[in-house]
């Protein structure tokens, strides 16, 4: 069958694939943490399984919310890179911190953060 290979002509989801980014950053010798949405209640902008990849300098790709909690999650990711411990974080309207970090959509989201060893 005369099928040509799919090349990068169209900006597709691949460019922001968090695992691909994590692997590429590791190959570049960077330290890397992954944050994953593991559960949501109520309205939440990103579905379960959404991932954010963070390097040791705090650069990140992907998302775990509509931008509301990424700042807080990046801080936790940097802490995970430093101490190697996994973290299960919860952000929502019942949490005073959540108002400060701004989960304005009114939902609750649980985020698992781990270092890529």
């Amino acid at each position: 069958m005369a099928t040509s290979e799919l090349t990068s002509g169209v900006p597709g989801a691949e460019d922001d694939d968090p695992l691909a980014v994590a692997a590429a950053w590791r190959a570049d010798g960077k330290t890397v943490a992954l944050a994953t949405v593991v559960s949501t209640w109520g309205s939440s902008p990103r579905p379960v399984g959404s991932q954010l990849v963070v390097d040791g300098d705090g650069a990140f790709r992907g998302s775990v919310s509509g931008g509301c909690i990424e700042g807080a999650v990046v801080s936790e990711a940097l802490a995970a890179i430093a101490d190697g411990e996994v973290r299960l974080l919860s952000y929502g309207v019942t949490d005073d911190m959540a108002w400060e970090v701004g989960l304005a959509c009114g939902g609750t989201v649980e985020v698992f953060v781990e270092r890529v060893e």
């Binding site: 040509s4 169209v10 989801a13």
Partner: peptide
């Protein structure tokens, strides 16, 4: 492609399925 689909375009008519019209798409 933006929505996450791997796309293949099928068309036996060569003038239509030209690589100029579908750069980067499997044909």
């Amino acid at each position: 492609a933006l929505a996450g689909y791997a796309v293949t375009v099928v068309d036996p008519r060569r003038a239509f399925a030209s690589s100029a019209r579908f750069a980067g798409v499997a044909v």
